[in-house]
Design a protein around this nucleic acid. Structure first.
Length: 223
DNA sequence: GACCAGGCACATC
DNA sequence: GATGTGCATGGT
């Protein structure tokens, strides 16, 4: 176990040395981070930025304004992020819960314990595990490790997980092998995204990857 | 034109 | 429980 912890910290240091501190989440304020977390589901972040900019330009980046904005109007604003009809519904589901559960006070909604917050987020239709953990870590600033497709690819390529490991198993792998440090977990996940955008893709070469020196699966860098 | 991008819910077997 | 499918825009 100590060896695994060491390996994870070595990986982190190697990525951070290459990419620098990532200073996530790339958004302002708790509400905007929550909105971005929902909009980025299976979507390129650049498209999300356009959608978020539209919402802000319309003066709707507040719980009460979003709450009173018709879903069809919200859908038009977030169109660049794709899946706009279903995401407009998901945004409303989230906002409605913040209103019901915390009187529309986003800070109060995010202020409870990690376990309680995670359970409530997961009970909202449209918020799954990754979105919930992103909201907890980046909007609430509380320790909940985020697992995404990049995390899965990097760990799989470097033989740290098995293909059949599910989300909760991978999340637990990190949380039980890293110090419980919000700043570390925040930057660690961001580093995985940075490395995953260029390396650790199915047909990507490993040359130049900061994790090049680690053990690889036998398909790494092959066609 | 194909493929991918910081998922999730739901239907079907 | 595992697998398949719909949702959709914009960049490469």
């Amino acid at each position: 176990m100590a060896k695994t912890s060491q390996t994870l910290m070595d990986m982190y240091r190697a990525m951070r040395q290459r990419f620098g501190h990532q200073a996530w989440w790339p958004g302002e304020g708790q509400l905007e981070i929550c909105i971005g977390a929902i909009l980025t589901q299976n979507t390129n972040w650049r498209n999300v930025e356009k959608a978020v900019a539209n919402v802000k330009a319309a003066g709707l980046m507040s719980v009460s304004r979003l709450h009173s904005t018709p879903q069809i109007q919200l859908a038009q604003l977030i169109k660049p992020a794709g899946y706009y009809n279903i995401k407009a519904k998901r945004l409303h589901n989230f906002i409605n819960r913040v209103c019901q559960s915390a009187g529309g006070d986003i800070a109060a909604f995010l202020g409870r314990s990690v376990q309680s917050l995670r359970e409530e987020l997961l009970s909202i239709n449209g918020i799954g595990r990754e979105t919930a953990d992103s909201i907890i870590l980046y909007a609430a600033g509380k320790p909940s490790f985020v697992v995404d497709t990049y995390t899965y690819r990097v760990l799989l390529r470097h033989l740290l997980i098995a293909p059949e490991d599910d989300y909760e198993a991978i999340k637990d792998f990190f949380e039980s092998n890293l110090a419980q440090d919000v700043e570390l977990w925040n930057d660690y996940h961001a580093q995985f995204v940075a490395v995953g955008k260029t390396y650790c893709r199915p047909a990507a070469k490993c040359e130049g990857c900061p994790l090049e020196g680690l053990p690889h699966d036998r398909f790494a860098g092959q066609q």
